[in-house]
Computed example of a mutant assay.
Amino acid sequence: MNIPYAHGNPYHRLLYGPAGPYAPLPGAKDLGQLAQYAAGQVSPVVHLHWDDRMFGRDDDPDANRINAQTLVDRLQAFKNAGGKILWTIHNKRAHFERDAESFAWGRGQLCALADLVHVHAPHAARHMIEDWGVAPEKIRLIPHPSYLDAYEPAAVTLGRPLPSSPNRRFLFFGTMRGNKGVALLPDTIARLARHRTNFDLLIAGKTMPRAMRRMQPVLDLPQVSVRDGFIPDADVPDIFGTAQVFLAPFGDFFTSGSVMLAQTFGLPVIGPDRAEMRAITPPENHDLLYEGHRPKPLVQMMKRLIDMPDEELQQRRLLCLDFAQSTRSELIAASLTTAIRSLGPVTA
């Protein structure tokens, strides 16, 4: 049994694959039916995602504490009825931190309750073991799946050539939260435009008013365009398929679906040289990662990509496509199914 909290993102479908003993329960955020579900199954497993959408979501700490205790009690009742818990760690801390104390308490409870803790990369495993005290034998390291076959047939994606353009085409994609490195962009793009004019930057995704106010000085540049709002699935191949390089100047992050999505479409990634980014990019492209979280090294790397011959960029592109194939859904789903079955026989 899977309890997803994301809608419109194919992550779950890619993680589980086309077949498997899973009964999705979209929107089951209160976990109220868990014990009843467990009682009717041979060996039920609940798969939890995004604990920041379970704990510390309200501005009222008292309400958060009551809600957190209720959720934990229901999970404990599920276990008492014979259920097992698989928990996937997606972030180091809450995306929108309202009540850090309640969130930390809830996460601590899940560390004890979970039978298996799924992480996407070694740094996440270390964090859960060293900072949260999770027993190493509970950890299962299974990479984030690529998005091959999610938005178009894989053969189309893998066969698409490097887009031809007189300018180097950069893409910044996703919800413009602070951890995305949005604050670096205004100064970075302004500096870059003083040295190079042969580039285009598309900012696509849901923007935030505060972030856009900071961006205003560079939005008038002819090289910069914005596509604000939710991006329909049908438009994803065109947005990524016409770009050449992906900007990921992230601050605090654990893993990144948008980086995996970019590389699925063959876009080399410019981002900070950190363990988190190295874990989700091909080793041969790690020289495109820069030191420091400030505009200067990001500008220098963007200049390098602008000046890079298309022949070299094509080789970088092929490395990304190979990486996407090595993390394709059927491989990741098989590993996850093995992990779930290790908890005992599972019925839908």
Rank of each mutant, 00 (worst) to 15 (best):
N2V: 15
H12L: 13
G20H: 06
A28E: 15
D30C: 07
Q33Y: 13
L34K: 09
Y37D: 00
A38E: 00
G40N: 10
S43Y: 05
P44K: 06
P44R: 07
H47S: 09
H47F: 14
L48Q: 09
W50E: 06
D58H: 13
D59L: 13
D60G: 07
D62F: 12
A63H: 12
R65W: 07
I66P: 06
I66V: 14
N67A: 14
A68N: 11
T70F: 00
L71Q: 12
Q76P: 00
F78E: 06
K92D: 14
K92C: 06
F96R: 12
F96I: 12
E97T: 15
E97R: 12
S102P: 00
W105S: 02
G108I: 03
L110N: 11
A112Y: 08
V117I: 05
M128T: 01
E130Y: 02
D131E: 15
W132Y: 11
V134K: 01
P145Y: 13
L148Y: 12
L148Q: 08
P153Y: 03
R160A: 07
P166N: 08
R169M: 10
F173R: 03
T175H: 14
G181V: 00
A183Y: 14
L185C: 05
L185E: 07
P186G: 07
L192Q: 08
L192G: 10
T197W: 04
L202S: 06
L202R: 09
L202T: 06
R210Q: 15
R214L: 15
M215D: 08
V218T: 07
L219Q: 13
L219W: 13
D220W: 00
R227D: 01
D238P: 06
I239V: 15
F240L: 04
G241H: 10
A243E: 10
F246P: 01
G257W: 07
V259G: 10
V259F: 11
L261Y: 05
L261A: 06
V269C: 04
I270S: 02
D273M: 03
R274G: 00
E276V: 06
R278V: 01
E284H: 07
E284V: 10
L289D: 07
Y290V: 03
E291C: 01
H293S: 12
R294N: 11
P297G: 13
L298A: 11
M308C: 15
D310P: 02
C320I: 08
Q325W: 08
E330W: 04
A333V: 04
R341I: 03
